[in-house]
């Protein structure tokens, strides 16, 4: 009897229940759709950015010629020569130089933090490196301008504004990136590896150089490549110390101009073909970054497979 009543009232409310569920499910779908849209905005942004940079920068390669731009030695945009080879060379040299410094010092600092440092000392060093990572690049540039450039001028001559100054500033700037990523991957090396080596009678340092560092090599490589990306993309700090003359640097003490500084310096007044040439500079930079990114994802995928 009781049950019969229940089922009747259940039947009556069944229709309204269904409506309620449908409304609720609709809400759920809308919410999911909105979140999906948010996730997709990242993809859309990347597409728009790539499209506009390439759309604005590629046509000039057709008008002036790919070879004339990428391998051209003379940058005189108002006279119609748009050679950016000196800038490409300067960017690559500055990046390689700073990475050579940053990778060595950075990796050793990471080894220090992960393996040798007493606890109290890492408690000081680690926040210090975090601070180093957060300092705006323009502050590094200012420091370079006011301290490094005069020092170079004093001891090496040549005015101080130079490729060397840029390398030093960039080298310090990319340290935090390399240190923190390398340290993380050094710490991720399983203790068993180290114990195995130590148990065979290897010393602590032998273990670090023969076992720990090789085991962490993908992470370390990733840190170095991220550092490279930072160095090649840095603009303001470099402008302040490199001298900005669009010439092929013959020595470390020569003035030079990187791809990034070329864009930042001339964008504010460039018109027409000149502006297009600056976008072309951006395209070349973009391509370099994409190559680095592909290398990076390959490394990460490899690291993933190893695990």
């Amino acid at each position: 009897m009781n049950k019969a009543c229940n089922s009747i009232s259940a039947n009556i409310s069944y229709g309204t229940q269904q409506k309620k569920y449908r409304l609720r499910n609709l809400k759920e779908h809308i919410a999911e759709g909105l979140l999906l849209l948010c996730a997709f905005l990242a993809v859309i942004s990347l597409l728009i950015i790539a499209t506009y940079i390439f759309y604005s920068g590629v046509p000039i390669f057709g008008k002036v010629g790919f070879k004339e731009i990428v391998f051209g030695m003379v940058w005189k945009p108002l006279e119609g020569s748009f050679g950016i080879f000196p800038m490409i060379a300067a960017s690559l040299l500055a990046t390689l130089g700073s990475v050579a410094f940053g990778a060595t010092v950075g990796l050793m600092t990471a080894v220090f933090l992960a393996e040798l440092s007493p606890l109290w000392l890492s408690k000081i060093v680690r926040p210090a490196i975090e601070l180093l990572a957060g300092i705006p690049s323009v502050v590094y540039g200012f420091f370079g301008l006011i301290v490094i450039v005069p020092l170079i001028d004093k001891y090496c001559g040549g005015g101080g504004n130079s490729l060397l100054a840029a390398i030093m500033i960039l080298g310090i700037m990319i340290l935090p990136t390399i240190v923190s990523i390398s340290e993380t991957s050094l710490r991720a090396v399983p203790v068993e590896y180290k114990e195995g080596s130590l148990a065979l009678g290897a010393s602590q340092l032998q273990t670090i150089f023969k076992v720990t560092i090789p085991a962490a090599k993908s992470g370390i490589a990733a840190g170095i490549i991220l550092g490279m990306g930072r160095a090649i993309g840095e603009t303001m700090a470099v402008i302040l110390v490199i001298g900005n003359t669009p010439q092929l640097p013959g020595s470390l003490l020569d003035r030079a101009r990187t791809l990034t500084s070329n864009i930042a310096i001339e964008m504010s007044y460039a018109q027409g073909l000149h502006q297009e040439a600056l976008f072309a500079t951006g395209v070349v930079l973009f391509v370099f970054i994409m190559i680095l990114n592909i290398v990076l994802t390959t490394i990460f995928r490899k690291a993933g497979e190893e695990k």
Binding site: A42, V43, L46, I48, I53, G233, L278, F279, F286, L296
Partner: peptide, 24 residues
């Protein structure tokens, strides 16, 4: 795809963002 896009966006130098913002 979304992972790839965020990784790439993270790697793009700020001057490229500046260029893009300027034109767009």
């Amino acid at each position: 795809l979304v992972r790839f896009a965020t990784e790439t966006l993270a790697g793009i130098p700020s001057i490229i963002y500046g260029l893009f913002g300027f034109i767009f």
